[in-house]
Design a protein around this nucleic acid. Sequence first.
DNA 1: AATTTAATTGTTATAATATAACACTATGTA
DNA 2: TACATAGTGTTATATTATAACAATTAAATT
Lengths: 132, 132
Amino acid sequence: MRKEHNLTKNQKIIFDLIDKSPQPLKAYSILYNVQKKGIKAPLQVYRALDKLVEIGKIHKIESRNAFIACHNSSCQVAKATAFSICEICEKVTEISSAGLSKYLANFKDKDGMKYSKYNLEFFGLCKKCTLK
Amino acid sequence: MRKEHNLTKNQKIIFDLIDKSPQPLKAYSILYNVQKKGIKAPLQVYRALDKLVEIGKIHKIESRNAFIACHNSSCQVAKATAFSICEICEKVTEISSAGLSKYLANFKDKDGMKYSKYNLEFFGLCKKCTLK
DNA sequence: AATTTAATTGTTATAATATAACACTATGTA
DNA sequence: TACATAGTGTTATATTATAACAATTAAATT
Ligand SMILES: [Zn+2]
Ligand SMILES: [Zn+2]
Ligand SMILES: [Zn+2]
Ligand SMILES: [Zn+2]
């Protein structure tokens, strides 16, 4: 069971916005959307984002510089993430596959490096865009 | 066998720099290093980087906004990349594992999305940093 | 409750990363 | 040559992210 984190005011405002969004949001688009709630500066947004990423409530899509809420209860607090990204409509989905996470968690390279974390991004066309 | 690409002047200057570097280089550090060779503006660097990524001579490490030369002859022209990243010394190594690429190339999520590309970044401590 | 410690906030300024737009040049091909 | 395609040089600007510092709030300890 995930530890409950009590979000602060700014964290909650920003998490709620990301959580309601069907697609990942970028930091300055978040800023624009929360200005009416009193969050006026980039740093206020980035600080909340950093914390939310740290506690696993959201993830950063690195190739897009955008943030999405975690919808995968088995994702171990931001330590093991996988996404599919449609290159046309930019729809992003968090992948939750026990097989995949097991395979990657146990993967060892030949240098014997010990991994504590990974991030995997698949790119392609979503079903909708394939049909077009 | 990979198709040979004839690099242009700027592309060659920038590829050579990246290829000689033991660690990934960032765009503006590249710019600084090639100014004496006549490349004066960010766009000149980014255009060469874009092309080099496209033809698979270099890869972008997304989580670091940095570029590394491809040292993996089996990597299918930037379509299937995997790296290990040391969180202390920032050493980055391209992983070439037939098992891993086979597993990921064949991975299908439950939405049946068709993937044409993936990028995987593992994080942890390299051997040297583990011993410290 | 009072103290003290850590986390968060608000603010201004600035750094770092990346692209738009436009005129021009080289290269390959019919 | 004529045309198409890709690359270049340049200026300006957009986008993403952090530094530094003072003030405030929340949480833990006494
Ligand atoms: Zn998740
Ligand atoms: Zn799509
Ligand atoms: Zn490669
Ligand atoms: Zn290391």
